[in-house]
Structures are given as structure tokens and as C-alpha cells.
Simulated scan of single mutants.
Amino acid sequence: MTPEKVPGRVVGQITRGTTNTNRLRRVDRWIARHPALRRATDPLVVDLGYGASGVTAFELEARLRRARADVEVLGLEIDPSRVARAQAQLAEIRAGRGQFAPDARVSFARGGFEVPVADGRRAAVIRAFNVLRQYDESDVADAWQRMSARLHPDGILVEGTCDELGRICTWVEVGADGAPRSLTVSLRLRDLDSPAVAAERLPKALIHRNVPGEPVHAFLAALELEWTRAVAASAFGPAQRWRAALTALDAAGWPVASAAGARSRWRLGEVTVPWRTVAPHA
């Protein structure tokens, strides 16, 4: 991995900085119910690579505080100008000007994959979204290792990507040991033509593996097939069609219901499978 040549010990490359309000709502609500946050002794959550605006960090704190009132969100960016802008936004919010709570437990600092956190603290959750898209697939494992090394032993790294409006999202859960655990696909079901649309927003570790012979291709093809077969259920709404498709996948032996509470998430357009189900061939 080639670090951006900027002063200091920051590791990583400056991203495009694309930021949209509500873009990360799907992954935020997934994090909000995760045991890594709910059971954390120190609910520190890092928003790594938040982009040109600090809005995703503010939204993350607002959503997570419903599950953990003591949650704290640290936004990290490599570009000093982005940090300065986010800090200016924070000052406005502290002054009561804005839609977020003036007492929001949010801060911003400069940092990259090394995830600098003061006082030796370790994050319960690191969310790194749309950060690795510009890297090579060969860089992913190293990035996961660097970030996960800054986690609490029970913490998680959530690394993924989404479209500009947050209607198509996919992410990988990675443990503190740097090993991937699962892949989640989350889609806006209203007006969804095909779940195969998720292929264009797969995480960097998988996006180039969506070809015949690779496990992720087989999974998406099976999901697309069952979605097509479940067309009759669309008379009862897209959520019912999605549920019918996933029920059929489960019956066919795909482990779409293996995670705790998996079925309850189906209504949200989510499906999670163990990493072994989609892990790339060597």
C-alpha cells in the first residue's frame, strides 16, 4: 500500500471526499444493533474517511446514541482542510445552529489507517466506508490489519461501499484479528429491479471477483434467481418478495439465516452471509 505523501505519520490516500446526507443510514442502523456497540465498555466509534463534510459523523452519533447514550464518535480524515471544515461545522452545532444536538459527542482529527486515538483507547467500532475503492485488491488485507489493530478485542471494523444516495450498500464485518467474518448486502427494496445491482458496489475485496467460478458470483446469481422466482409475492409488496427470495435461498442451503436476528433484518432489505460463503478463491 502506498501512503499519501503528506506530513506526519498518516497512512493512506486522500479520497474523493464524496459526502451526502443520509448516505450511510443503512450501515448506521446495522451498527446500532450490533453487540460490539451495545456491550462495549468504552463505546468509541471511529468514522474513518468521512469525506469533504463532517455530516456522516454527526449522523452516526445521532443514530447510535439511541442505542448507547454515551457513544462517542471520532471522525478521521487525511486532508487537513477537511478536518478544519468539520471542526467549523462542529462549532456551529455547539452554538445551536444546525439539526444535530449541541451536546453531540463528536470530535474530528487528522488520521488514516493507523487510526490515531488519544490516551491509548481502542475503538469499539471503526466504520470505513467508500475508502478502499481507489486501492488495489492486494492492498485490502493490509488495510484491514492496520485498522483492526486499533480495535478493542471485542470490536469490529465495518468496511464497505455504497452508491451516492445510500440505496445500494455492501459491507464486510472484520474482527479485531483482521479476519473477515461476514458480508452484508443492504438494498432499498422500493423500485428494486434486481438485487444483482449490488455487484457494482461490492467491497474492494470482492468487486473484481464477481465472475463465474467465484463464490460471490454464485451467491449473487442465486439471490437474483430466487428474486425472479418470487415475483408473485410482489403483489404483497417488495419486502414480502425479498423475504420469499431469502426463504428460498435458506431452503436451498445458503446460510442467509445463520446470523443472530438475521430474519428480522430481511424486512429492511438486508441479507448477511458468513465470509466463507463468498470468500475469494486464492
Rank of each mutant, 00 (worst) to 15 (best):
D28K: 11
D28I: 13
R29E: 07
R29D: 05
R29Q: 09
R29W: 07
R29H: 12
W30I: 12
W30D: 08
W30N: 08
I31N: 02
I31C: 08
I31S: 05
I31W: 04
A32M: 10
A32G: 13
R33W: 14
R33T: 14
R33Q: 13
H34K: 07
H34F: 14
H34R: 14
P35D: 12
P35M: 11
A36V: 03
L37C: 05
L37M: 07
R38N: 15
R38K: 13
R38D: 12
R38P: 06
R38V: 15
R38M: 12
R38I: 14
R39Y: 04
R39T: 07
R39F: 06
A40W: 00
A40S: 09
A40T: 05
A40K: 06
T41N: 08
P43N: 11
P43D: 10
P43S: 13
L44Y: 03
L44T: 02
L44I: 13
V45K: 00
V46N: 01
V46P: 02
D47G: 11
D47L: 00
L48E: 02
L48T: 06
L48M: 13
G49E: 04
Y50I: 10
Y50F: 15
Y50M: 09
G51Q: 02
G51C: 06
G51P: 03
A52L: 06
A52S: 13
S53N: 03
S53D: 03
S53Y: 09
S53P: 07
S53L: 12
S53A: 10
G54Y: 03
G54M: 09
V55Q: 01
V55N: 02
V55R: 01
T56Y: 01
T56R: 12
T56D: 00
T56N: 08
A57H: 08
A57Q: 14
A57D: 06
A57S: 15
F58S: 05
E59G: 00
E59A: 06
E59F: 09
L60T: 10
L60A: 08
